[in-house]
Amino acid sequence: MYANSLLTPGTGLIIWQAIIFLLLVILLKKLAWKPIVQSLKIREESIQEALDSAEKAKDEMAALQSDNKKLLEEARQEREVILKEARDVANNLKEEAKQDAVKQAEKMIEDAKNAINTEKQAALAEVKTQVAELSLQITEKLLRQELKDEKAQKALIEDFIKDVKVN
């Protein structure tokens, strides 16, 4: 009786179930599963994209930061170099100036020495000529004084002759 109908599938129910289930698959596929599955895919992709771009932004940020650090480091080094160069240049300039001054002073001293020497030579020469002239004049005056009379002249000649005779 009933137990029999529990285990034997009813024909009508089979027909209804087949029709309804087929309709359900078709309808739900169109109305629900397609949009749902598609949207889930889109959403998953967009989430993945967002995560990826966040990761990328983080990487870029880190790269930028390390770039900044590098730039700063480079700038510092460059400053160091420039400062050092400037200091060197200044030092060189100072040294050169000092040397120039020393050279100039030496040259001036040299020049002065030369001038003094020349002046000295000139003065000495003048003094020599002057002395010679004076000596001549004195000699002239002396000779004139000595050889005023005949006797003195004779005495002188005799003196000479005496000298010659000795020789």
């Binding site: 739900l28 109305l31 599963w33 949009p35 598609q38 889109i42 959403r43």
Partner: peptide
Amino acid sequence: LLIIIFMAVGKAYKKDAK
């Protein structure tokens, strides 16, 4: 019931997937 519920759910997805 299946059609009513999943049509509503499907509509919600169609409106804005993200």
